[in-house]
Computed example of a mutant assay.
Amino acid sequence: MEIGEESAENLEMVATIAVTAPEAGIRLDQLIARKTPDISRNRIQTLIRQGQVCVGGETIVEPKYRVNEGDTIVMAIPEAEPAEPQPEDIPLDVVYEDEHLIVIDKPAGLVVHPGAGNWTGTLVNALIHHCGDTLSGIGGVKRPGIVHRLDKDTSGLLVVAKTDKAHQGLAAQFADHGRSGPLERSYTALVWGAPGTFRGTIDAPLARSVTNRQKITVTRSGGRRAITHWQMIKRYGSGDGDAPASLIACRLETGRTHQIRVHMAHIGHPLIGDADYGAGFRTKAARLAEPARSAAARFPRQALHAGLLAFAHPETGDLMRFKSEIPDDFQALLDAFDTL
């Protein structure tokens, strides 16, 4: 077994384990626990379920998976998070708040949860300060209950629980993905090019990239099921399939990390401004007419906004439905594309 620092940027350690003949048939979590005695088996199981473990180049999310002789196991070990994030006086755009939950309109650039490289200045730090004694706490600690997240550079609506009961109720709705309840999440995305139809569904499992653990990729096996429903709002420029860009509404049936960004790139229409999944389309900006060319080149983030969020209130059962207007920077980008 070898354990080494993967990069100073994300402070992530990587454990590499080669499976020998006597170890064949052993459960994945058991073998890793034997080889990494300083890591609890509970945390190992959590890392497996989070998609942090690859066997033979494929992400495995089942701790009971049986390993084979000759397998190479690679486990990413993120640095542990501080037990108690500290309150920070960071302005928040509060859309709704009561004693059970709070709905925030998150600006682009705000990280949701403390983690490697972002221990302070996050939404959680801001919520601890804002909510104060109204937080009865999650799991016995006065902290907000995060049931879903938005990427740092994605703007829009996010609901957070203040109590254990609210956390459990909201978490159950997000786990159900709206199949039996009113949960609904819709995003607006500006993408390169134009799909050949006006609506569609992308059903493609996602897993962490084996070559870059910071990225997500579509995988044929070993990933988690991910479903995105999309619908055309507007095509820019040409009215046919050669349109340089399109405004798309995306509705999530599942909520995986980077799901919309990866899925839209998977069908050949990455989000404008997405440096991780749309870098190969940067040259398209140079072929646009002004002012769209300059606007696209300057846009510093993925063009993605969580504009609709609906759920059942975990205490009253009432339908809660919220909408958020596209933020100014995104709207300025759309205005520039309107000139095409």
Rank of each mutant, 00 (worst) to 15 (best):
residue 14 V to D: 02
residue 22 P to Q: 13
residue 23 E to H: 13
residue 38 D to K: 00
residue 38 D to T: 08
residue 46 T to Y: 02
residue 49 R to I: 07
residue 50 Q to K: 11
residue 54 C to K: 04
residue 55 V to G: 12
residue 56 G to L: 10
residue 68 N to Y: 08
residue 72 T to F: 03
residue 76 A to T: 12
residue 80 A to H: 03
residue 92 L to G: 08
residue 105 D to R: 02
residue 109 G to C: 05
residue 113 H to A: 07
residue 114 P to N: 04
residue 119 W to R: 15
residue 138 I to P: 03
residue 142 K to Q: 13
residue 172 A to K: 15
residue 173 Q to M: 14
residue 178 G to I: 02
residue 188 T to R: 13
residue 189 A to R: 04
residue 193 G to L: 07
residue 194 A to T: 03
residue 197 T to P: 02
residue 197 T to C: 06
residue 198 F to G: 13
residue 208 R to Y: 07
residue 212 N to I: 05
residue 216 I to P: 03
residue 220 R to A: 15
residue 229 H to N: 14
residue 231 Q to T: 15
residue 234 K to L: 11
residue 235 R to M: 08
residue 239 G to F: 07
residue 239 G to H: 09
residue 239 G to K: 00
residue 248 I to P: 04
residue 258 H to R: 11
residue 263 H to C: 13
residue 268 G to Q: 01
residue 280 G to V: 05
residue 290 E to S: 14
residue 290 E to L: 06
residue 292 A to N: 02
residue 302 Q to F: 09
residue 304 L to S: 00
residue 304 L to F: 04
residue 304 L to N: 03
residue 306 A to K: 02
residue 315 E to S: 09
residue 318 D to V: 15
residue 321 R to W: 01
residue 326 I to L: 15
residue 328 D to E: 14
residue 330 F to N: 04
residue 330 F to A: 06
residue 338 D to E: 08
